[in-house]
Amino acid sequence: MFELRRLRLLHELSLRGTLAAVAEALSYSPSTVSQQLAQLEKDAGVPLLVADGRRVRLTGHGEHLAAHAAHALELDERVRGELESLQTAGAPVRIAAMQTAAQSLLAPALSLLAEREPALPVVVSEAPPESGLFELAARRFDLVVAEQYPGHTREHRSRIDHDTLGADPIRLALPSHDSADGLAALRDRAWVLEPEGTAARQWAVQQCRAAGFEPTVRFEVSDLTAHVRLIAAGHAVGMLPDLVWADESPRVRLVDLPGSPSREIFTATRSSSVSRPAIRAVRDALRDAFAARAG
């Protein structure tokens, strides 16, 4: 019989690509991961890994068993969810939230949960959508709060369920003394944008190109509160979503973009977790917190 813990290691290796990355993600030593996978290989009776330079890769048998491992982990999660529904308190819900959601939505959502489900434990980490969604598939998190920019689609991951919270308007952000009336007037300004490779950066650059120029990115920062400070101090211009303001008044001048675009805010969980009462409770609280803010 295959041990589920070893099957998870194989599944993690299929996602992360290296034994070191698996060890770091699961807080094991690389030697422990290697030993456990060697035992799994003995249990399987066929080669699962093959040396590839200084790394290893899955054989055809390994890929086949890794696919079955994903199904086994999903079934295990479904069963645990059904058992959880019969208990007064279950395992903690591990949440990953992007920065603006962590600042604007988590506190009111957790207050709602404290009223509705006082025994429900929640563990929260701040994570950008790209890594949060990856780690959701890898089972480090149970629920992710992420974003989708208009016209941009994220990598499709099988067995992940999305639920839309609502739309978050995106606007030009200028120093308060800046009288520019639109995007085209900012072609010669210094810009602050999120790092390359993020959906926010790709989308913002596309807006500038549609207006006929390539933005001069002087500041590449992931922390949107730093964007606000740089813009308010007159060092840059940028594009900011409304969620960044949380409960405070904007400290910059906001100008609508053409077409009044919004990003979609959504929660994601594994399909095998959708029926978990704890997941439903957290999703409901986040949805109500977003609706209260939007209203």
Rank of each mutant, 00 (worst) to 15 (best):
E126S: 11
E135G: 10
L186G: 02
R280M: 14
A70H: 09
V282A: 13
F134P: 00
M1V: 14
G62T: 09
P258F: 04
L286P: 10
M239A: 07
E155T: 15
A285Q: 02
E248D: 09
L133N: 07
A210V: 03
S273N: 12
A226P: 00
V221S: 07
A25W: 04
R8S: 13
P121A: 10
G81E: 01
A67Y: 05
P150Y: 08
E82L: 15
E41V: 04
A167P: 01
V22A: 10
E12S: 12
R139Y: 07
P258Y: 05
L120I: 02
S14I: 03
R263E: 06
G60F: 11
R16M: 13
A200C: 06
V33F: 08
V192Y: 03
L165D: 06
R16Q: 15
L243C: 07
W191G: 05
D52N: 10
F2I: 05
R94V: 04
S125M: 00
L193V: 05
A210C: 00
T59I: 04
L48S: 12
V221P: 00
E155D: 11
R209D: 03
E135I: 00
R263G: 09
D168M: 10
R157L: 15
I231G: 04
E63Y: 03
P47G: 12
R263D: 03
L143V: 08
P277A: 08
V79M: 02
Q207T: 08
Q202L: 10
A246R: 05
L243K: 10
L143D: 09
V124Q: 09
D76L: 00
L230M: 12
R157D: 10
L193T: 04
R78T: 11
F134N: 06
V56Y: 14
P261A: 01
A246N: 07
V56S: 09
D52V: 14
R276T: 04
V124M: 09
G182N: 06
S111Y: 04
L165W: 02
S34G: 03
T198M: 11
S111P: 00
D288P: 00
P30M: 08
G166F: 08
S104M: 05
T225A: 15
D223K: 02
E214A: 14
L75W: 11
A210T: 03
A291Q: 08
Y28V: 02
